[in-house]
Amino acid sequence: MTTQTLIPDSETHGMAATAVLDESSAASSDGTGQRSGGIIRERILSPQTESGTGWPQTEVQATNRVQRLQLASPLIRLAAGSLPKERIRVLQQWEGVVTDVGEDSFWADLQDLGDSSLPIEIVELPIEEVPEDDRDLLVEGGIFYWSIGYETSVGGQLRRMSEIRLRRTPRWTKRAIQRVRQRAEELFELHGQQ
């Protein structure tokens, strides 16, 4: 059974609404919900229409409304004690900069994020430790975060964990490149002539 609770914008900081689901609703999707990675996201209509006259009267009105309304917040409130939670306890974290990439391994300079007074550490790690989705980011100069700790699974099992995540950086846009060209010309005119 799904319980829907409508929350005014003022309480949701601009989000149209949020949903309160009970445990049974997580296993199935009704007509208004959609599954996304195991989480049900509810489309919930606000009671206020654009004209302020109430609920939509026709299917077309409702469709238009749905297009304009935001998706419900992904916030899902579970009843207390309904599910055990997965917990992660981080023991160590570094920020790394890739300095060299080989066939099966890569080298990096690590800075301890818990104690910045410690000197730089140099490490060689197997490429297979990097998530496949991140491997295209494994280039000289790439930045990553390495965390080591313990993970308590949903079933209560304790596991030692290590996670390497490459930082995704923005891409150069045409406009940014144009600005670089223009700035380079200014700098060269100012400093490159003698």
């Binding site: 023991l91 391994s105 410690l118 140099i122 490490v123 060689e124 290590s162």
Partner: peptide
């Protein structure tokens, strides 16, 4: 120019031993 890295929590040390092919620290 390099030395042994600082000693850490035993679980962290175990993970480092298992994962890192080499690990050293820049001399301060």
């Amino acid at each position: 120019p390099t030395r042994r890295p600082p000693r850490r929590n035993s679980s962290v040390q175990r993970t480092l031993r298992e994962m890192a092919l080499s690990h050293r620290s820049v001399s301060k």
